[in-house]
């Protein structure tokens, strides 16, 4: 048989196998309800601004807890095992990656979508110089 055909076949088979395998790495964003089976998932939601956030670096700088509301409106406590991210309060949308354990979502990664810093900024006006 032609060598090139063999190679092509090997590549195609390898390709299919890899793609089948890789498709397991991919998922839609989950919500808290779907996370109850304990899998590692990504959840999109918003910060529940009326609930308290706790960050006590003196006790543990790698733990920041807040409440998040997913897109179904379910609210759960999220414990992020990282320092509190900058501009956290300004986030419009949060994506956390982690596992749900009981009633607490343990997150190891966080992505925030913040309103663009430069986009909607007013045209800055020079401060009045000099004293009266």
């Amino acid at each position: 048989m032609n060598k090139n055909i063999i190679i092509a076949l090997i590549l195609i088979v390898a390709g299919i196998l890899v793609f089948i395998n890789a498709s397991k790495d991919v998922s839609t964003y989950a919500n808290f309800e779907q996370a109850t089976n304990g899998d590692r998932v990504k959840i999109v939601g918003q910060l529940a601004k009326d609930k308290p956030m706790t960050y006590d670096p003196q006790n543990n700088p790698n733990e920041f807890a807040f409440f998040m509301k997913d897109d179904k409106g379910v609210e759960k406590k999220v414990v992020l095992h990282q320092p509190k991210p900058q501009d956290f309060e300004m986030s419009e949308q949060i994506v956390v990656t982690g596992e749900l354990e009981g009633d607490v979502f343990n997150a190891s990664e966080i992505l925030m979508k913040c309103p663009s810093k430069y986009k909607d900024e007013e045209i800055a006006v020079k401060e009045q110089e000099g004293k009266i």
Binding site: A22, D25, V26, T28, R40, T97
Partner: peptide, 16 residues
């Protein structure tokens, strides 16, 4: 349609 995302980005690429 609900968009798909890679769950563990760095792990996914490194693996292959």
């Amino acid at each position: 349609y609900e968009g798909r995302v890679i769950k563990d980005v760095i792990g996914h690429y490194n693996k292959y």
